[in-house]
Amino acid sequence: MSITGLYRFYRDGFRSMTVGRTLWKIILIKLFVMFAILKLFFFQDYLGSNFSTDEERADHVLQQITGPAENNH
């Protein structure tokens, strides 16, 4: 199957959708909400606001990853 044939296949399929268009709109709205709006309110720039250089940021991340594990026995 050629690229133009593949393109026509999907183009015609999306044109004839009725319920599918609504579902795609819902999916796109949900993706927008997840990546744009939630990022603004819940995922603050912690490293950028608390550390001034890249070296300090790297040291903090390294300490968080390789820090001592707590024993919760």
Rank of each mutant, 00 (worst) to 15 (best):
M1L: 15
S2I: 04
I3E: 13
I3G: 02
L6C: 10
Y7C: 04
Y7I: 11
F9P: 00
R11A: 11
R11Y: 12
R11S: 14
D12C: 07
D12Y: 15
D12M: 04
G13Y: 08
G13M: 05
F14E: 03
F14H: 01
R15W: 09
S16Y: 03
S16E: 04
S16W: 01
T18N: 06
V19D: 05
V19I: 12
G20Y: 05
G20W: 02
G20S: 09
R21S: 01
R21N: 10
T22G: 14
T22V: 08
L23N: 02
K25V: 07
L28S: 13
L28A: 15
I29A: 15
I29P: 00
I29R: 06
K30T: 12
K30S: 11
K30E: 06
K30A: 13
L31P: 01
L31A: 09
L31W: 06
F32L: 13
F32G: 09
F32V: 05
F32Y: 13
V33Q: 04
V33L: 11
M34A: 15
M34T: 14
F35N: 07
F35R: 03
L38A: 12
K39P: 07
L40E: 03
L40W: 08
L40N: 04
F41D: 10
F41N: 06
F42S: 08
F43L: 09
Q44V: 07
Q44G: 02
Q44R: 13
D45V: 04
Y46I: 14
Y46K: 10
G48Y: 01
S49M: 15
N50V: 00
N50G: 04
N50W: 03
F51T: 00
T53I: 00
D54E: 11
D54I: 07
D54P: 08
D54F: 12
E55S: 10
R57Y: 01
R57T: 01
R57N: 08
A58I: 10
D59W: 00
D59K: 08
H60E: 13
H60M: 06
H60Y: 11
V61H: 05
V61I: 15
L62K: 13
L62I: 06
Q64I: 05
Q64L: 12
I65Y: 11
T66V: 02
T66R: 03
P68Y: 06
P68A: 09
P68S: 13
E70L: 08
N71R: 14
N71D: 15
